[in-house]
Amino acid sequence: MTMSDTPVAAQKAPRRPKRARPAAWPWLAPALLMLGAFYLVPILDVLRLAFGDATLLRSVESYGLEGIQQTLSSPALPGVLWVTVVFTAASVIGILATGMLVALTVVRGEMRGLWGMSALRTVVLTAWVVPGIANGLIWQMLFSEAPFGALNSTLAVFGIAPVRWLSDPSNAMVSAAIANVWQGTAFAMIVFYAARKGLSQDLYAAAAIDGAGPFARFLFITLPQMRAAILVATVLVTIQTLNTFDVILALTGGGPGRATEVLSLFTFNTVFYNFDLSGGSALALILVLIALLLTVVYIRLLGDRPDQDK
């Protein structure tokens, strides 16, 4: 398992001339054993289960491709995948755009010594530490379709008819994405804030002399210069969005119908409500494959950066 790398380290250690330089592996063992038992073995087991016919109550009795075939040809799957794509795309775009807006606002405000910039940063970060389940419940109160619901009663003040935030399928998708963006923006903000701070002011000064307006400066300096940070944030936010569903579970439960049932929630329901362990494992495998693919992209992105010491 994870130990495969450690003998290498052990062989190398005695060659070191300095005294008191014991092998690296005893230091690594606790963490690696932990990761082996809780990550590697389960992931391999998911692979095994996906090719079997186990249920939550019964172990695998025979292996084959029928289980996977059956899962992949499930009539619900295309809809679930589509919902996943729409929800993820909406969340990622929303999070990146809002995160960029907040980061650039804070950076500009700080440079000009404006008041309230740390308040903005703090408020955005506060949303980030709200537990996902609480996030879903809070937004459920906001989107409540009762006449006294937060948004609908506010709209009523302006004489606007109530909106079916959660009971209309396409609105529910938008609502779920809004709740996710509210929470997720902070991460993109942190990444973009750090990246923008790292940009040289000379570029902007030169552009200003050339008469470039704020929009042109954003388009031709900020965006290209922050390309690496934007790509990194895109990959990480995508993985994060694909992997979690507690906000959706608490907000809509995947409904109405299956309008907001994303792949991870569908997988959860397959295993823990339908007790279809092998079917759920096949779906989990899709999640793992997407995550691995995106991680490879992420690692490549890190490697491309000149300031990286790896």
Binding site: I43, D45, V46, N243, L277, A291, L292
Partner: peptide, 11 residues
């Protein structure tokens, strides 16, 4: 990067 859900199925 692997979803905790995936791990929890076998766990």
């Amino acid at each position: 990067m692997v979803s905790p859900l995936v791990l929890l199925i076998p766990l």
